[in-house]
Design a protein around this nucleic acid. Sequence first.
DNA 1: ACAAAAGTGTTTTTTATACACCCATGC
DNA 2: GCATGGGTGTATAAAAAACACTTTTGT
Lengths: 248, 248
Amino acid sequence: MPGRNQRKTAEPLKQPPLADFKVGVDNVIFSVDIAQNRLLVLLVMRQQEPFLNYWSLPGTLVRQGESLEDAAYRILAEKIKVKNLYLEQLYTFGGPERDPREATDSYGVRYLSVSYFALVRFEEAELIADGVTGIAWYPVKQVPQLAFDHNKILTYGHRRLRNKLEYSPVAFEVLPEMFTLNDLYQLYTTVLGENFSDYSNFRARLLKLGFLYDTGIKVSRGAGRPASLYRFDAEAFAPFKDKPLIFI
Amino acid sequence: MPGRNQRKTAEPLKQPPLADFKVGVDNVIFSVDIAQNRLLVLLVMRQQEPFLNYWSLPGTLVRQGESLEDAAYRILAEKIKVKNLYLEQLYTFGGPERDPREATDSYGVRYLSVSYFALVRFEEAELIADGVTGIAWYPVKQVPQLAFDHNKILTYGHRRLRNKLEYSPVAFEVLPEMFTLNDLYQLYTTVLGENFSDYSNFRARLLKLGFLYDTGIKVSRGAGRPASLYRFDAEAFAPFKDKPLIFI
DNA sequence: ACAAAAGTGTTTTTTATACACCCATGC
DNA sequence: GCATGGGTGTATAAAAAACACTTTTGT
């Protein structure tokens, strides 16, 4: 029974005081530049202290009456215009020492960050540059030192993305509506590294699953035989939902 | 640019007020009763409003200077004595409507729950019954209606456990130090369902991996040939760390 | 002796991996 | 015509799944 640390007051068993929190939401927003085969993450330049003029993940503090997810969508909408996207919760970072404001701000207020992981289509995502705020797609391999513990959050998000690619159809959230099988393959190699699978085997496996619809439209990328454009068929994929699918 | 919803005050671009949070930690603590082949979850009876006399996941509010994980360990230590355990963060639930206190309590305070997922050995876990608080291992198949959104959290935790079993050695955190291969197999069937694999194939696969050490000690469970007791060899497992191991 | 549980082995089927080769286009 | 990227097929190896069979105990 927890008998220590009690304050000696009139009330029996008075516990140490509770922490008061402000809750922030930070988004790790990924996108893939098919043309240059680079995995990108959206960063914004901070306009206030702390960490003024540091790059950071786009984030915000949760407002009254707003759910965590609402907040995540709100910052997203403030930073980019996008048709559809994939969003899921990542992790909650909440150590008492992660935000310097905890020391300087009004007494005892803690800052907690619930991070979200998002995927958007590079071609469809239009950055909202207001002329004041710096905002940019950064290749994940070249991100600088970020504000707060955002590098840690980004690393965590990147790992989640790699895992997701292997067992879920997130790739099709990032690709344009129509894509060649090589686009898909490049996406996988970009995120997962060179040696994850042979192209022809990758191709055969994916096609056998039967949820890639060949539009018949051919597209030529410079020299070489033109490639077919495929479309992800969500209905045909439905039976695979929740099953231990492997895209490797 | 977010130009709506501003309050018309002296400051330019005054945003809607931020929410103030108390942060709770709720633990989904699993254990397996080898003898009866049941997956158990630890529940406590609530002693206060709201949800007085409802069963709930053991939880607490985070105190000043305390990290989320510290808080998770604290409740755990208040409820059970246990030698070693596995603990990881699960999910953060934070909609504005999840806790009725938000309406009745001091104005505007939101309650957010960071849930943790824990595994303990049934034999080694000694429940701390203080004579006042109800506390019990419940078979997950028979949990009643719980306080708050705890049923949802439990479901989420259960799913995580099933996934973990398939690609990580968590099973050995729940089993006693020494166990028969049949114990291990039963654990998997208990959590994953009947038809996940043939016993002899399961057995062959696990043994081939080489991190199960046969102690040579035999133990007889009623009729039939006595079984060997095995021990999980953490060192021999090390090379498999982070690799896409499959226990199926 | 026989049922029950433990443990071994063999066969079949499926899936992964490597790689050879044909096809259509630009230059 | 030949380099380039797209696309198909095949041969081999490995792993998963099904299941038959042997061993050792309690009763």
